[in-house]
Amino acid sequence: MMIVVTGTTFNIIGNYVLGFGKFGFPQLGLAGLGVARVIALYVFKNQNLRKYRIFQELHRVRLRILWELTRIIFWLRNRIFLVITFWTGTLGTEVLAAHQVVFQTIIVLFMVPLGSSYATTVRVGQ
């Protein structure tokens, strides 16, 4: 089962990269989709590549690494908001006040659907 999930994920990424020409690769269209599928099959079926165990540990969640990434993302997000607020403050008091009003409005507008989705999840779970 895990091989199917890993293979599908690898195939989706390959299709995106080769089919649409992302990350510096040429846009190959349908031919790119075929090339991505052939590469995925080759990597999974080739006996010489199996010894490298490329996809063996891909499905395991490493909580310590996940925690570190989450901490870094929250830290960066908070710092970006702080820097934007400081930059807005250099434009004047009125601009800073308008920024805060818009920011708080966005937060309120986001929290209503978020709370509704949490409540829906709880009800469905019950």
Rank of each mutant, 00 (worst) to 15 (best):
M1K: 10
M2E: 09
I3V: 08
I3G: 12
V5H: 01
V5P: 00
T6A: 01
T9Q: 08
T9L: 09
F10C: 10
N11Y: 11
N15D: 08
N15R: 13
Y16V: 03
Y16P: 05
V17C: 01
L18T: 08
G19E: 01
G19C: 09
G19M: 02
G19N: 01
F20W: 06
K22Q: 10
K22L: 00
F23S: 04
P26S: 02
Q27W: 07
Q27V: 02
L28R: 05
G29K: 09
L30A: 11
A31K: 06
A31E: 03
A31G: 05
G32K: 01
L33Y: 08
G34I: 03
G34K: 00
V35C: 03
A36F: 00
R37K: 09
I39V: 12
A40E: 04
A40R: 06
V43M: 00
F44D: 05
F44G: 03
N48V: 04
N48K: 10
K51D: 01
Y52H: 11
Y52L: 12
I54L: 00
F55T: 01
L58T: 09
L58D: 04
H59V: 04
R60D: 13
R60W: 02
V61C: 08
R62T: 11
L63Y: 09
L63F: 07
L63S: 14
R64D: 15
R64H: 06
R64Y: 03
I65G: 06
I65W: 03
L66M: 05
L69W: 03
T70R: 13
T70F: 10
R71I: 08
I72R: 11
I72A: 07
F74H: 13
F74E: 12
W75V: 12
W75M: 15
R77K: 13
N78C: 14
R79Q: 07
R79F: 04
R79A: 01
R79K: 10
I80K: 11
F81H: 14
V83N: 07
I84Q: 11
I84R: 13
T85E: 15
T85F: 09
W87D: 12
G89W: 07
T90N: 08
G92D: 11
T93G: 03
E94Y: 07
V95Q: 15
L96R: 11
A97Y: 02
A98M: 13
H99V: 08
H99M: 10
Q100R: 14
V101W: 02
V102S: 13
F103T: 15
F103R: 13
F103A: 15
F103Y: 10
I106D: 11
I106R: 11
I106H: 08
I107T: 15
V108T: 14
L109N: 14
M111H: 07
M111N: 13
G115T: 14
G115F: 05
S116K: 12
S117Y: 07
Y118D: 06
A119Q: 14
A119F: 02
A119H: 06
V122L: 00
R123S: 00
G125D: 09
Q126N: 09
Q126A: 00
